[in-house]
Design a protein around this nucleic acid. Structure first.
Lengths: 118, 118
DNA sequence: CTAACATATGAACATATATTCATATGTTTA
DNA sequence: TAAACATATGAATATATGTTCATATGTTAG
């Protein structure tokens, strides 16, 4: 039984490796970070979140705003809902969506600072 | 020739729509936002960035740290390089990568605030 | 110059994901 | 209750993406 070698380099810097290894966030946080960014990595979802930043909206309004089918919007709202980024309430035939996270704006703003300096 | 109807609802709220429409960031910013988050949406890339937050590292070190093949790391470093999130310098046979963005930490921190409140 | 080492890269493959289409569910009005 | 409306959802499709494998490029030691 062979040990699988992922890195066969001989030049590994043990000191650096140990220092960095000790400062790495836990696996769980790293996973959640990537998952969070994955939710925000789609243009349609970013637009929806930005829209909701200004006003609650029903699915119909969002469809009209983004000029996309109701189905496409509905699917994306489900993703945002599962990620707990938005919540919803029913009002008659309509379903209104709103933000369920106070940090979205800060996250967007930080990313925009990055973008606007490049 | 028919006009394609993306939303055939009759219940569109014109006032809300106009208000939101005026407050939407430009298409370009929205696109760049999603693109930025897409770069950060992969676990391997998040780990690499967190590692580089503590120390410059050669490809070999990163491979060893994450227990992944040199090739996989190299491919991801290329993505990060193209996104201008990391830069590199050659030192003999090794290539050292380092962060090329001061905002990564703030972006991660903001996202972690979100994560840790859910 | 040649061998050994460190990194980069193209192609292939498997997997994930966004949208469409058809249709189901839920609500109100007539 | 039936019809119209608003939204949700499963299946299918097309596309994007991460890793592996093989190999190329670049650097240094002998």
């Amino acid at each position: 039984m062979d040990i699988i070698e992922k890195c066969d380099c001989t030049a590994v810097h043990e000191d650096i490796l140990n220092k960095v290894k000790n400062n790495m966030p836990c696996e769980n946080n790293l996973y959640n970070l990537a998952e969070t960014f994955k939710i925000l990595s789609d243009g349609t979802r970013v637009k929806i979140l930005y829209a909701l930043l200004n006003s609650d909206m029903c699915v119909c309004d969002i469809s009209a705003l983004l000029d996309m089918t109701q189905s496409a919007i509905s699917h994306q709202l489900r993703v945002l809902k599962q990620a707990r980024l938005v919540k919803y309430r029913r009002e008659g035939k309509s379903v209104y969506y709103s933000l369920d996270d106070e940090h979205i704006k800060s996250i967007f703003d930080q990313a925009l600072v990055h973008i606007n300096e490049k």
